[in-house]
Design a protein around this nucleic acid. Structure first.
Length: 814
DNA sequence: ACTGTTATATTTTTT
DNA sequence: ATATAACAGT
């Protein structure tokens, strides 16, 4: 089959890869080992296709084979393929697998996350939108910092207007593709009007900084396509085949993007006058599983997958129900849990792998005991030759839960690796270093510039900063330009001026290295040395700073790797023809790469077939999506932990938690463990948690309980001596915790409040009138939970109904 | 301008 | 319990 349209701007495949073999796999090879629905999905032509892919049903295989099929059998140009994955790692893997099938020409496909794809498009089209192509990408922390500045500008009461909350609101608006004006129109009360105003200023500041936040990447791209039909037509002409993985986790902006590229919309009929030839829609295939939608909290809309057939008329659906991953026992358990969600399309995952082992359950005294059980069990499995450390994953609901496991694993010498959590790129020293690089690449980037202005301390204090700020605002120039002309600014001390001059000179020198085409790693090293940043850390006697130096060395290593081979790695784009305006694969590309890494991108590749036992992998359930392990420990199965407390009162949220449980359960191939703790300390205070409702949703006969609640230590006074507590080697801290646990578990609610929280948690009943520091007068509607976990729904009249955690909320009973 | 103290929020989940 | 922010003191 030949291409219907010429594709402008695509490099010639042959010219690009003279040395690469142009592999041409046989049809049989491409279809080998596929079941019937899988085969259908691979060879499908024409209408939009939805592949409903249950957990472990081989969807990655379908995606890669289909891409190979498109190239090899249907003559599609690799450059005309756009495949969207959820993480960069998944993208790299997919590219690699397709390459194995059809050879190096596959490298010029676009396989990336939504965000990376948008960045690439925006870098090319930035002129249309009025910013420079070297724009900086702000992560959550940067955005928060900027929003904090905005709040200060607006003189907002930070108690009532928390930057986080505003940012959430703005993020939602952006996901719905609303700019600040539309968002302002939709504002329903004065608070939201203020939010919209903050949105306006925030956006203005972003523009001044030549920066975009995560949500902008998506929204701007859609706006670009809508505002410039001819630009959109160009991209439509380029991408003839679009494939989207994890479609159930797309938000409205992502949906709209796909729609712009792939839908044969009515609007299109009327754009004929633009002169552009109408481009027929690209062939679209989306893959997903509504039961694995777990990102509603960041705007994902499960409706996108449920309504696919309505959104894309003529769409066809293929169901993949055979599971190739897990034992039937595991699947039955997962099916049983997810079956408790309402309004889902029934799906019956099955496996012919046999029943396998029963699920093992364990109820620990506390989270430490639970962790000890996990460690011992892994030890036992490896002694018996049933598994190695690298076959095992430990999942939990929140990052904070990793701590106990780390402590226990360190003590018993179990090697492990935590994925996510305090991410490498979020560590202070790494962020500082990156802020330097970002300032060098884009000195308009205010957040980065201010971050490093006086780090390390160089005598440019608050006062000097304020003077420059005032001067820059007055002269309508950027803060950086203000620094460059510091001698013009009134009110600056001579001493500060000298310091500013040398800072400006430092940055300018480093910039000249970029212009000279110096390598990223060299620039980074020079930055750290010349700024004195490294020296300060090395001379410090804080033991933490030693690790910081190591982390920076690690960052330099990452940069070196990138400089030597920018092709490998998530956001490399070999399809891009060299752009004469932009510096060679350099600073901007490097910064983009590190800005868009996902947690799961950090998972180390396990060399297959190696004898080494490797390490146990620990991560949150969210990070676990898309992965699989022979042995899985699903921990912290307690109401309030998992399902998370904040979801308990809300059905849709609870159903999302249940989907999360489904995701967790279906990661296991052979053996599944579930565990919980009777008592768990959070926020320094112990809490007595009931079993997770998800445990009750498992078929009883599938779980073999190694230890149950009935076998727990009974909490009587003499037990506090510690004799029942394992080795009896309690630390002073442990003793204290036990003492307070006692009071939490058996003392009256009133006494326990005072004893552990040291703060009055008002005991409220429905109907009570209360006073809140910022919401004013309210009436209690309902109260859930007790003591320090009590959550009350309170009607504040014009302020709306709020759900407040009484332990923190500044409410007073009247 | 810097340092050390104390008060306060922080914990869902993430591109 | 820990991390950051605000504050006061040198």
């Amino acid at each position: 089959m030949s291409m219907q349209f010429p594709i402008p701007g695509l490099p010639s495949v042959e010219a690009e890869e003279p040395s690469q073999k142009r592999r041409r796999p046989s049809r049989d090879e491409l279809l080998a080992g596929l079941n019937e629905p899988q085969r259908q999905a691979v060879v499908h032509e024409g209408a939009p296709l939805l592949v409903v892919a249950g957990a472990g049903s081989g969807k990655t295989r379908v995606l890669t084979r289909r891409i190979a099929w498109l190239i090899s059998e249907r003559g599609a140009h690799p450059g005309s393929i756009l495949a969207i994955t959820f993480t960069n790692k998944a993208a790299a893997e997919m590219r690699e697998r397709v390459e194995e099938l059809v050879g190096g020409r596959a490298r010029i496909m676009w396989v990336s996350t939504f965000h990376s794809a948008c960045v690439r498009i925006l870098r090319k089209e930035s002129a249309n939108l009025g910013f420079k192509s070297n724009f900086t990408i702000y992560d959550a922390a940067d955005s928060k910092r900027l929003m904090t500045l905005v709040c200060r500008d607006l003189d907002l009461d930070v108690k009532r207007f928390q930057p986080r909350a505003i940012l959430n609101w703005v993020s939602n608006a952006k996901n719905e593709l609303q700019d600040h004006e539309e968002a302002a129109k939709d504002a329903r009360n004065t608070q939201e009007e203020t939010y919209a105003e903050a949105y306006r200023i925030y956006q203005e500041r972003l523009r001044q900084a030549n920066a975009l936040d995560f949500d902008d990447l998506l929204m701007m791209t859609v706006h670009l396509f809508r505002a410039f039909p001819e630009v959109r037509e160009n991209w439509r002409r380029r991408f003839r085949h679009v494939l989207v993985d994890e479609y159930q986790d797309t938000n409205h902006a992502q949906y709209a993007l796909i729609h712009e590229l792939c839908a044969d919309s009515m609007e299109e009929l009327t754009t004929a006058e633009s002169g552009a030839e109408r481009v027929p829609p690209a062939e679209l295939m989306v893959v997903g599983d509504a039961d694995q939608s777990i990102y509603a909290f960041r705007g994902a809309n499960i409706r996108n997958i449920m309504d696919f057939e309505q959104d894309f008329p003529n769409a066809e659906t293929v169901l993949l129900e055979q599971n190739y991953r897990s034992t039937q026992t595991i699947l039955t358990a997962a099916n049983s849990v997810i079956g408790h969600n309402e309004g889902r399309k029934p799906k019956k995952l099955w496996s012919d792998a046999g029943d396998g082992a029963k699920i093992t359950g364990y109820v620990g005294d506390d989270e430490r005991d639970e962790a000890r059980f996990v460690a011992e069990e892994i030890d036992r499995l490896s002694d018996e030759g049933k598994a190695r450390a690298k076959d095992v994953a430990v999942f939990y609901r929140t990052n904070a839960q990793s701590r106990v496991f780390e402590e226990v694993f360190i003590r018993v010498g179990m090697p492990y690796k935590v994925v996510g959590g305090v991410r490498f790129y979020e560590r202070r020293e790494v962020k500082d270093a990156l802020a330097y690089l970002r300032t060098i690449a884009n000195p308009a980037d205010l957040v980065s510039l201010r971050r490093i202005l006086n780090v390390p301390k160089r005598g440019i204090g608050e006062r000097a900063e304020a003077c420059i700020d005032a001067y820059a605002t007055r002269e309508r120039i950027t803060f950086w330009e203000g620094l460059q002309q510091a001698d013009q600014a009134p009110g600056i001390a001579t001493r500060s001026l000298t310091m500013i001059r040398s800072f400006v000179e430092l940055i300018e020198q480093l910039q000249s290295m970029v212009v000279a085409g110096e390598r990223v790693d060299v620039i980074l090293e020079q930055t750290l040395t010349r700024s004195g940043y490294l020296k300060e850390l090395e001379e410090s006697d804080d033991p933490q700073d030693e690790t910081r130096v190591e982390n920076l060395a690690e960052l330099v290593a990452v940069a070196r790797e990138f400089a030597e081979d920018p092709q490998v790695g998530p956001s490399a784009d070999p399809a891009d023809e060299p752009d004469p305006d932009a510096p060679p694969p350099g600073l901007t590309d490097f910064l983009e790469r590190v800005a868009l890494v996902a947690d799961s991108d950090q998972i180390p590749d396990v060399p297959e077939g190696e004898d080494a036992p490797g390490v146990v992998t620990m991560m949150t359930l969210h990070t676990a999506k898309g992965l699989e392990f022979p042995i899985v420990f699903l921990t912290g199965l307690e109401d309030g932990v998992f399902p998370h407390m904040r979801s308990l009162g809300d059905k849709p949220e609870l159903e999302e938690e249940r989907r999360l449980a489904y995701v967790g359960l279906t990661r296991a191939r052979e053996r599944l463990y579930i565990s919980r703790a009777i008592v768990r300390s959070a926020w320094g205070a112990p809490a007595h948690n009931p079993a997770s409702r998800f445990i009750d949703e498992l078929p009883v006969d599938l779980v073999d309980w190694k230890r149950t609640a009935a076998e727990q230590t009974s909490w009587t006074r003499q037990d506090l001596g510690g004799s029942s507590y394992g080795g009896g080697s309690l630390t002073g801290r442990g003793r204290q915790q036990m003492a307070s646990r006692f009071s939490s578990a058996s003392a009256s609610a009133d006494a326990s409040k005072k004893a552990m929280a040291g703060r009055d948690v008002p005991s409220l009943d429905p109907g009570d009138r209360v006073q809140h520091d910022s919401f004013g007068l309210g009436t209690v509607i309902s109260v859930e939970g007790a003591a320090e976990k009590a959550v009350a729904s309170i009607d504040f009249g014009s302020e709306g109904v709020k759900r407040l955690l009484l332990r923190y909320a500044p409410v007073e009973k009247l």
